[in-house]
Computed example of a mutant assay.
Amino acid sequence: MEDKVTSEERETVTFMKSVLEAAFSGIYALRAVRDENDAIIDFTYVFANELIAQQLHMRSEEMTGRSMLQLIPENKLNGFFELFCTVLQKGQTVRDETHFRTSQINAWFDFIIKPIDRDSLVVTLQDITDAKNSMLQLEQQKNLVDNILKNSSNGISVTRMIRDHEGKVIDASTILANDAAVNFSGLSRHTYLNTTAVGLDPGILQSEYGQTCLQTLSTGQPSMFQYYLGVTARWLELTISKMDDDHLIHVFTDITSIK
């Protein structure tokens, strides 16, 4: 009977280990090492699946029983040793993300640290490096665009078409405008971004400028145009480019002084 129970237990352990190895996330368990004063001085690996072991260029079985601070000495100073101790002390689960850098690892991780008992905890982590790098790249691109818009001496704006139920353009609204565009328009930023083109000039769609915009929207060919903005009594020289089927980009300069 004892042999049967032992066999079943071994099968259960083997099955659970297979499940953990098949997991898409990295998973490892740590047990605290305490000194004679009951203070935690290190952790040992109780289990680590292959995703974790690969980060250290090891096999998972090679990590079992090994000192965490020997394998990853950086954990003593990067805050994770202290965090593990705090999780055990408070008995509270922690979730966060980190840019984890060691002599062997340089990656972003989303992690969860869950206490099991007084001395044991489990860490589950997901490598989010690709997603994080993409997000950082988008943020850098956004900052670059923002700086271009902010520092450009030309007015730059993006206009969104407003269509009726048949898809015909009946109006347009400005959804983005840099400071130069607002200054050249002579309008307040609130008015510029919250009043439609027809609201500013009821006949704008029938005007030569309006027809040029619609032609650019239809053909995709950029247009250059000089336009008198009656509401502010300014002459503007515009380059009109198609962004997509519903948006036009305007780049313009106030040329009132030379007209």
Rank of each mutant, 00 (worst) to 15 (best):
E2D: 13
K4C: 01
T6G: 08
S7V: 01
E8H: 10
E8G: 00
R10E: 15
E11V: 02
T14P: 00
T14K: 14
V19A: 10
V19Y: 08
L20A: 05
A22R: 10
F24L: 12
I27E: 02
I27G: 03
Y28I: 04
Y28W: 13
A32I: 07
R34C: 01
D35K: 03
I40T: 07
D42M: 09
D42Y: 06
D42G: 04
Y45L: 01
E50G: 00
I52H: 00
M58E: 02
M63I: 02
S67M: 09
L69S: 07
Q70S: 08
Q70M: 04
Q70C: 01
L71E: 04
E74T: 10
K76F: 05
L77D: 13
L77G: 00
F81Q: 02
E82V: 11
E82F: 05
F84Q: 01
T86A: 09
V87W: 03
L88F: 08
Q92D: 10
Q92A: 14
V94E: 04
R95F: 03
R95P: 00
T98L: 07
T98E: 13
H99S: 06
H99I: 06
Q104W: 00
A107T: 07
F109H: 07
D110W: 01
F111V: 03
P115H: 03
P115G: 03
I116T: 07
I116A: 02
R118P: 00
D119P: 01
V122Y: 11
V123G: 03
V123D: 05
L125C: 07
Q126M: 10
T129N: 08
T129M: 04
A131Y: 11
K132H: 08
N133Q: 15
S134F: 08
M135L: 14
L136R: 14
Q137N: 12
Q141C: 02
D146M: 05
D146W: 04
S152R: 04
S152N: 11
S152E: 07
S153N: 09
S153Y: 06
G155K: 06
G155M: 10
I156T: 11
I162A: 05
R163A: 08
R163G: 09
H165F: 09
H165C: 04
E166N: 14
G167T: 10
A172I: 12
T174Y: 13
L176V: 14
D179E: 15
A180M: 13
A181Q: 10
N183F: 10
F184P: 04
G186R: 10
S188K: 10
H190T: 08
Y192D: 02
N194V: 08
T196L: 12
A197F: 15
V198M: 14
G199E: 12
Y209F: 15
Q211R: 15
S223N: 11
Y228L: 06
L229R: 11
G230V: 04
V231E: 06
V231R: 12
W235I: 05
D244S: 11
D245G: 12
H247K: 12
H247P: 05
L248S: 08
I249S: 05
F252W: 12
F252I: 06
D254P: 01
S257N: 11
I258Y: 09
